[in-house]
């Protein structure tokens, strides 16, 4: 699974993207975030305030309650500040 990170999530994790094998028991986006935080202290720091982290599956916004499914690309980023 390809994971991509942006803005301060990217900076705190220390990389912009990586390929990761996900455990089988992850059902929702929220489960994924919880698992991500166990991957090391940089992940724990980046995703500490889990509720503010936005997630996109294959370039579409999803709620944390959404089923993960089998996307090609999962993105993690803070609230957006464009425009």
């Amino acid at each position: 699974m390809r994971l991509v990170y942006f803005s301060w999530v990217r900076e705190k994790i220390g990389k912009g993207e990586e390929d990761v094998e996900l455990p089988d028991d992850i059902e929702t986006v929220r489960d994924l975030l919880s698992w991500m935080k166990t991957r090391g202290e940089e992940y724990e720091a980046a995703l500490e305030h889990q509720d503010v982290i936005r997630v996109a599956l294959d370039m579409e916004h999803v709620l944390h309650s959404e089923k993960l499914g089998t996307p090609h690309e999962i993105a993690f980023f803070p609230p957006m500040t464009g425009g």
């Binding site: 942006f6 803005s7 980023f77 957006m80 500040t81 425009g83």
Partner: peptide, 14 residues
């Protein structure tokens, strides 16, 4: 469009 660009388009300002 501007209101939704601000809150949904994936851009971040530093």
């Amino acid at each position: 469009i501007m209101d939704f660009l601000k809150t949904r388009a994936p851009f971040w300002k530093k």
